[in-house]
Design a protein around this nucleic acid. Structure first.
Length: 175
DNA sequence: CATATGATGGACT
DNA sequence: GTCCATCATATGG
């Protein structure tokens, strides 16, 4: 399991380094493993694309300490974020797509991956470093892959930075 | 209680 | 790329 210090860095760095890591979901006595293949970085207070810049609950949660999970409901879906950066600074990384390793649900999108792993608001504000039902593991055998970046998806106004990161030529990327 | 609003997904061009 | 059905929240009366 990754230590809290992994998340306590700039969200752009965490978003990049989360790629290729293994997300583990435990439901009852079953284990579901998947590889993280696509992420986006969000900067709450000064990010026009983030709803947290408008204030409210999201902004508060994004200021929690790194490693806190933030589950956000939109349309008929759930999206999961990990809080990054220092406590008091509103930063988070959104999980956008996973490559299923020992199951076959489709995970090509933030809403789909939450549905596949049965992630809902029960995980909101929980600690990814302590949770017994969902956590992130390091890769055993380092595999080589190229990280690409682009503008973020589904937002009307955005920063000029490219804050969406994904593994090049992976077939499980959304769109 | 009423209503506005999307960090979407899927179908389609 | 574009269109749009759909529903959990946030907010206001």
């Amino acid at each position: 399991m990754l230590s809290r210090s992994f998340y306590a860095r700039d969200s752009e760095i965490v978003a990049r380094e989360l790629l290729g890591k293994i997300l583990v979901r435990k439901i009852g006595n079953k284990i579901f493993k998947s590889k993280i293949v696509e992420t986006e970085a969000y900067y709450g207070t000064e990010d026009p694309a983030s709803r947290a810049c408008k204030g409210g609950d999201l902004r508060k949660v994004m200021k929690n300490r790194a490693g806190t999970m933030l589950v956000y409901g939109i349309h008929n879906n759930w999206l999961i974020n990990f809080i990054t950066g220092k406590k008091g600074i509103a930063e988070a990384v959104l999980l956008r797509a996973l490559e299923p390793l020992n199951f076959s649900e489709r995970c090509k999108g933030p809403g789909l991956l939450c549905k596949a792993l049965k992630i809902n608001k029960d995980f909101h504000k929980k600690d990814i470093c302590k949770c017994k039902e969902l956590w992130v593991e390091n890769i055993k055998n380092k595999e080589k892959f190229e990280i690409k970046s682009s503008h973020r998806i589904g937002v009307s106004s955005d920063l000029s930075k490219k804050l969406r990161f994904f593994i090049k030529e992976n077939e499980f990327i959304s769109r």
